[in-house]
Design a protein around this nucleic acid. Sequence first.
DNA 1: CTAGGGTTAG
Length: 706
Amino acid sequence: MRAPPPLSAAPLLSAAKTHARLIKSGAASDTHAWNAVLTAYSRSAGLARARDLFDEIPQRDSVSWNALIAAHASSPTSSSSSSSSSSNALSWDLFRAMRALGLPFDHYTLGSVLKAVARSARLQFGRQLHSLVLKSGLDRNVFSASALVGMYAKCASLRDASRVFEAMPERNAVSWNALLAGYAEAGEVDAAFRLFGRMERASSVPDEATFASLLTLVDGIAYHRLMCQLHGKIVKYGQAKDSVVCNAAITAYSQCGLIGDSIKVFDKMEDNRDLITWNSMLAAYACHGLTDCAMELFVKMQEFGINQDMYTFTSVISSCTDHGHHNQGRILHGLVTKRGLDGETPVFNALIAMYIRTSENGMMEDAVKCFDSMEFRDSVTWNSILTGLSQNGLSTEALRFFGHMRSVEFKIDHYAFSAVLRSCSDLAILQLGQQIHGLVLRTGFASNDFVASSLIFMYSKCGVIDDARSSFHESDKCSSVSWNSIIFGYAQHGQARIALDLFTKMQERKVPPDHITFVGLISACSHIGLVEEGFNFLKTMESKYGVAIRMEHYACGVDLFGRAGRLDEAKELIDSMPFKPDATVWMTLLGACRIHGNMELASEVAKHLLEAEPREHSTYVLLSCMYSGFGMWNDRALLQREMRNRGLSKVPGWSWIEVKSKVHSFNAEDRSHPQAEEIYEMIVMLIEEIEVFSSRESEIDDFEFG
DNA sequence: CTAGGGTTAG
C-alpha cells in the first residue's frame, strides 16, 4: 500500500476541535461552522474523512454540497487505483443528487463540476454543463466562464475553448492561462505566443501560471532563442523566483540542450525546492544520459528526506541507459517494490524499457517478467514489449506478440504498426506485411509518418519500390521520417537521381533534414558513382543545413570514394576526421581495398581494425579472401590460425525468400535446395541480363508528387 | 465552498 500524503497538522487539529465542539454543544444548526470543518477535512485529512463528515452534517445547504463536490474534483490522482476517475465521476453524481434535492447551484458548483469533467476529459458532460451555464446566465461570471474555457482546453476542444474565451465580458489571468495551457498542451507554439502577446497588450499581467505553460513549449535546441526571450519576460514580470516557474525552467533548459542552466536554476533554488523540482532535475539528467548525476541526485533526495514518488522512479530508472547500469536497474526495481510503487503503470513501463536497454544479449526475459506481473497495462506497456522484440531482431516473436495484442488489446496504434512492420521487413515476408498494410489502411494510420516510414522500408526491402512510393504519397510528409525512408529506398535501388530530386522537394516543403537524411543522400550518390555530388553534401551539411557530421557520414564518404576506386581520397578523408574513426569507417575502406585489389592499403587498414576490434570475424574473412585473391597463401594460413587461436569462426550470412507462403533459405555456395540446379541456372541468366543492362545507359523514371 | 500552472514510460 501507498504511504498516506503528509498531513498539515495545524489546520486539521483546529478543525477537529471545532468538530468536537459542534457535536457536544448541540450547535447542530450552525451549518456555516460544519461547512468550515468539511473544507478543512477535505484539504488536510483526505476524501474519505470529508465524506464521513458530510454525512454527519444535520442541515446540509448548497455550500456543504459545493464543498464536497470540490473535494472530489481536486482529490489527488494515482494511475494504479481508479480513485481519481471515480472521484471525478462522483462529482458529477453528487451534482445530480444535489439538483434532484432541489438545491440551487451557483458558480462555485459549476466551477468544481467542470474541473472534475475536465480531469476525466468527459466532453459530453462538459457540453451539458455548458448549456446549464448559458441557461443560468453564469456565462457572464468570470469563474464559471474560465472553468468552461479550462474544460474545453483539457478536452482538447480548442475551438470551443477559444469561442467561450472570446465571448467573455471580463477576463482575469486565470481565463488567459486556461486557454494558453490548452495551446501549450497541444503544442500549438504560434497560437500560444500570439495569445501571450495579446495578454500583454490587454494589460493582463502574466503570472507564474502563464510562464509555467509557456515554458513547456520549449522542445529542442531550435528553441534556444525563444528560451532566452522567455527568460527576459520572466525576469521582467518578477517571476524568476517562483518555484513552479523554476521547475518548468529546469525542464525547458534541459530540452533546449542547456543542462548547465538547468543545474544553475536548481542550485539557486535551495529554500523553495519541492518534489517536482527534484523530479525535474532528475528527468533532465536522465534525458541527457547522465546516469551518475541522476543516481547521485536520487540519493541526495533521500538524504533531504524528500518523499519520492512515481515520477522520481520513472526518471531515475530511465537514466539506466546500457548494460553497464544493469545492476543499478535491478536495485531500483527492488526499491520500487519496497516503496509500494509496483502498482504504478508508468514505473513498470520504465522498468520494462530499462531491462530491454540494459540486457546484454538482447533477450527479453526480465522485461517480459515485468509485463506478466503487471495488473494494469496501457498502450505504452504493450508497445514497449513489441518494440523491444522488433528492435532486438526477435521478429517471429514480435509477430506473435502483435497477434496477441490484437486479440486482447482495445486499440493498435502507430507505435505498434511501425514496430510490427519493421519485423516484417526484417523477415522479408511481404505477404504478411501487405495484410498488416490492409489493417493500417482500415484503421486510418497510413498517413502517420512513422507507420508510412516502416511501410516504405518494408516495400523497398522486398524490392517493390513502386509500393514504397505509394506509401510515401499517402503519408503526411511533415517530418523527415518518411522522407528519409523513401530516399533510402531509392538509394538502395540505385536510383540516386530520384533520391536527390526528393531532397529538393523536401526542402521546398520546408521539412528540415536530419543526420539520417544525409546518410541516405551520400549513400545514394555512392551507389551510382556521383562522387562530387556526394562529397558536396558531406562538405555542406553542417554549414548549409545545420546538421552535425557524425561518424556514419564519414563512413558514407569513405564508401563514396572507395567504390569509385579513389582510395587515396578515401584515406585522406579519414585522416581529416575531427574524431577518431571507428571500426565501421575502417571496414568500409577495407571493403573498397578488396574491390579494387589494393593489398598494400588493405594491410595498413587491417592493422587498425584488428587492433580496435580483434574479435570481429568479418575483418578476418575479408582479409583472408584478399590473400587468396593475390595467391598469398602463407599469409592466409597465418591469419586463419590466428582466428582459430582466438576462438573465432566465420559466421555465414543467410538469404531467404518467401514463395507461396513457404520460406526458402540459402547461404553462400549452398546447393542443398531441391531445386538448386534450376536456381543456379537462373542466376547465370540474371547475371548475363544485368551485364547487358548495365552496358546501356541507365534510364531514370520521372517522379511525380502528391 | 470556486476557476489556470510545473515532473514520467514507447
